[in-house]
Amino acid sequence: MDLARVLINFFRVESCGKCTPCRIGTKRAHDLLEGISRGKGTLEDLDSLQALSQELLELSNCGLGQTAGTPIKDMLAYFRAEVEAHIRLGICPVGVCPMHD
């Protein structure tokens, strides 16, 4: 979960801003992950993240935006329980997320 946040931050920072999905999508995804890491996530956020990862892949202009969805997609595919723990239980199972502001 923390790694996904760091990776999406990379894409957010490196996005040139030309196309809509990458410019706004990476920012949205980062905001959501940041929220989850601070204990403010909701289960709907996960649906939003799922949708965003797909949009980034399909709608972005270049490889940067198209790749930006991958960490989220993999996080949800392989570490969903860990992410949900942040939301449902209010804990970071590996103890790296601050879980507060």
Partner: peptide, 20 residues
């Protein structure tokens, strides 16, 4: 044209992904 907004994406048979 600049292809930035991504509203005009269409699908083309055989193409990799959608195209503007």
């Amino acid at each position: 044209p600049t292809g930035a907004c991504r509203m005009c994406l269409v699908s083309v048979k055989g193409a990799k992904g959608l195209v503007t």
